[in-house]
Nucleic acid binder design. Sequence first.
RNA 1: UGGCCCGUCGUCUAAUGGCAGGACACCGGUCUUUGGAACCGGCGGUGGUGGUUCGAAUCCACCCGGGCCAACCA
Length: 779
Amino acid sequence: MNEPKSPSSPGTDFIRQVVKADVASARYGGRVITRFPPEPNGYLHVGHAMGICLNFGIAKEFGGCCHLRYDDTNPDTERKEYVEAIQEDIRWLGFDWGQHLYFASDYFERMYECGEVLIKKGLAYVDSQATEVIREGRGTVTESGVPSPYRNRSSEENLDLFRGMRAGEFGDGEHVLRGKIDMASPNMLMRDPVFYRIRHASHYRRGDDWCIYPLYDYAHCLEDAFEGVTHSICTLEFDNNRELYNWVLENVGFEEPRPHQYEWAGLDLENAVLSKRKIAPLVEGGFVSGWDDPRLATLAAYRRRGIPPEAIRLLSEIVGVSKTGAQTEATKLDFAIRRILNQSAPRVMAVLDPIRVVIANYPKGKTEEFEAPYYPHDVPLEGSRTVPFSHELWIERADFLEHPPKGFRRLMPGGEVRLRYAYVIRCDEVIKDDAGRILEVRCTYDPDTRGGSTSDGRKVKGTIQWVSVPHGVAAEARLFDHLFFREVGEDQDSGAIGDCLNPDSLTVISDMKIEPSILTDPENTRYQFERTGYFWRDPIDGCGDQLVFNRIVSLKDAWAKRDTKPSPNKVKAKRPTQAYSRTNPEASKQPRIPSGGEQDAEALARMLRYTGELGIGAEQAEILAQSLEWSSYFESALTVYPDAAALATWIANDLRGLLAGRSPADLPFTGESIGELASLVEDGGVSRRAAKDVLARLIIEGGDPKDLVDSMGLRKVTDTHELSSVVKSVIDQWEEKAAEYRAGKSGLLGFFVGEVMKKTGGAADPEAAKSLLQDRLDN
RNA sequence: UGGCCCGUCGUCUAAUGGCAGGACACCGGUCUUUGGAACCGGCGGUGGUGGUUCGAAUCCACCCGGGCCAACCA
């Protein structure tokens, strides 16, 4: 009962679709191997947790495995302490890497050998320029780089130098190994990237075995390949690195099926500091108590705060997987935590900010006990404890108001409130000190309401929690809020960090009261303090006799929210629209005329011919004319079928859309085929819609369009009789939809056409089907 | 201003040429010995302009907006 609702379409994100397709096509023999590759230079945070859920989740769902591999290629920053902490976090989250624990540093020898392979192929060289010179030589995003003077060293010399680098013959920074790729590449990463650097430093695992260390782009893809990883999933910012990932693997000699990289957006959580680079100064600067300070978004902090791992996994489901760089609202995390805890946390009574209530008509010194269930009626768990009641009680200061606003349902002078599981009391008198601060509230109880229900049927709207003064236990509570009230910039020093800090991020309540039953519970019990929030004992400071409770998350509070309600006539803030920003609407229609150069002159001539003589629109003409590849493809289609405008659409719009960036040279069919296809459509033998299906097939396996039309059963069905019967059966099948359509939901017509198309395997003439459908539906 | 990636309710995410759907948030209601939970209902979206198509969130073009890339970090 009350299973957490699944988010929409679970498990159908674009990465899982790729994996699913690869399993179906047996691309890797059905194997699925993912990996989670942390660098042991800090603690994991919720962002990493999403990556862990993704990688381990996919492996589990597809019967594969997920490797835990430390990407420990930088001796300066990595420590054993972190590798242990990371493992603890992953286990806590509920994932298991089994035997598959790996370290990049174990591959140093193999990686080195790959370096020699590249050198021998003439694809890598030792550069001896200074760091700054290399940097400058790389150019900028708008200017290409200049080749290093060492770029053309012989393989022998490179090999000799590289071996010398390894042997420790050189100092830090004297040489590097670079890939010999393309100094003019628009992708900066391809401008002869550095593969190895000299660093005389002790590595936390390899000690002084090595004095050269591989860099990420070189190392990471090799690690994946060594381990037989199939799907290497990383975040969006590595998009540019994919080209290099592929280059290294292909040139070192890893053939298909080899690992491939896929990028997703990762998690950006509102109010959470999600970068090790930004967390470290908070820890080191003493702004927080450590990597596990509960205000942080590290997994260690979440664990300490008391967030259950199930909630993190639920968050991962809720947030989903996409390539949209987006920020997730903090309320989604809160929701996930409450969703889990509501179903599992025993309820107890605690008072965070106590005021004293004296029950005047309850005998001093008398105590009675109430049996109180741990769980509310809608949580299917059993259990109860007894709570002691007496002459003096603590209640929450906020639960008594001398001058309450309208709608206040708690205690007020002359009013009644129910003490949960106990009695209904009425407030008779308020005792204040000289400063007007309330010292105690004097009440009388109604003995006929034992257990909380009235015998005369009168309604008591409010119910509040309470703690008996002589029995209550004192404790400390810690409430957490987000650490910053303002975004901290990228390179800010600790002074600037201090300026952004939320002074109320930690509230310590030193004198809360709680019912004594908790004294006999396991220390790691997560409670709901009724009407207040979810709490558990701080695992560090709340052990043994120390009663220190962390608030994991508050309860939703509909009453408190009433003040912050946005006014109904508030103008809705809209994303600024760009509707008016274009100054010349015709501008986009003007083809850009290529300028200068012999090739451009030819392209221009083609362009003019296409728009003039052939009557093609400027947009498509530009696409087709610009490259020789496309223009010759187009013109060969033209030899088969003379309707240039139709062909231009087929090629410029449909074909290129299906090709997703690939070139016509890769196609298993020629321009003539597409011309033939277009003529089949013109003849009426195939609908345009069916022809597009044929095109898609053509791209995959080539073939003769006419044969494909037949073998796919796509010869157009125009026969009115045949079509009518399909139309009738579709309408009969979807009676309700038909009624909706008749009631005015005209958008449903497309749905019906789609159904007819489905039923006929795509062969129906959609236009004919549409008019038949309309006729039938309209009467 | 070079290349690449991304724009769907306030937020996150489905729809893979055929009904724009779900979740969170918000609002209202029912119920309630937690102003919790649950249940019911409501609000609300394809960045813009053209084009292709019987039919476009989806294909094409341009524009606008956001992000990433010039470490011997990962």
